[in-house]
């Protein structure tokens, strides 16, 4: 989570291994296909996509740097400035909003004292609004890194943030224990089929 925008970037040997594995999936001369995954990889290493990242990915994938920058700015999952260790993205689109995303946001603001776009002084948390993240069934929800936290309320959100602050383990996915996006209180159709745990994410 550091560095200035123009600082040169290099993959660490471990990340370089992964980058090579990604590029190996594409035919020779088509290195450009690796731009998206490599940007993601770099973001995992550095925490955000700096100019240095853009230039390094451009070099590795033999892509004009402007094209890499175009791609990097097109997708909101790439961050263009350093963020907190836990970058909290709260969905505020229609489904989550109807189901109480305002409460979720309020909980975070109350707990951390930061607003949307803000960052805590210890760089542990940063807060952002997100457009629909595709988990509408379990609205309201928020995303931190690769994890979704769903079916949130004011209390469960505060609890979640508090635990993260203390570094305690947290429960990912639905906070009310539903599996996948099945109805609250268990399946209402094909109930028998589901209990045999052939499909779905039954715990």
């Amino acid at each position: 989570m550091s560095g200035s925008a123009t600082e040169a970037f290099q993959f660490t040997p471990e990340y370089m291994e992964q980058a090579k594995a990604i590029l190996a999936k594409y035919p020779q001369g088509r290195e450009r296909s690796g731009v998206l995954p490599l940007l993601d990889l770099a973001q995992r290493q550095l925490g955000w996509v700096s100019t240095g990242v853009v230039e390094e990915v451009a070099r590795i994938t033999k892509t004009p740097r402007m094209k890499v920058l175009e791609v990097a700015t097109f997708y909101t999952m790439y961050k263009h400035s350093p963020k907190g260790r836990h970058h909290v993205e709260v969905c505020t689109n229609i489904a989550c909003w109807l189901r109480g995303s305002d409460e979720v946001l309020r909980a975070i603001k109350d707990e951390l004292g930061i607003d949307v776009g803000g960052q805590t002084g210890d760089d542990l948390f940063s807060l952002a609004e997100a457009e629909c993240l595709g988990a509408c069934c379990n609205a309201p929800m928020l995303q931190i890194g690769d994890e979704y936290f769903e079916d949130l309320t004011y209390e469960t959100t505060r609890d979640l943030v508090r635990k993260l602050k203390r570094g305690e383990p947290v429960k990912v996915g639905s906070q009310i224990g539903r599996s996948g996006s099945e109805p609250e209180g268990g399946p209402t159709t094909l109930a028998e089929f589901c209990t045999t745990s052939k499909v779905g994410g039954a715990e």
Partner: peptide
């Protein structure tokens, strides 16, 4: 000279 582009969306 691929130095122009469209940023954002």
């Amino acid at each position: 000279v691929p130095e122009m582009g469209m940023l954002g969306r």
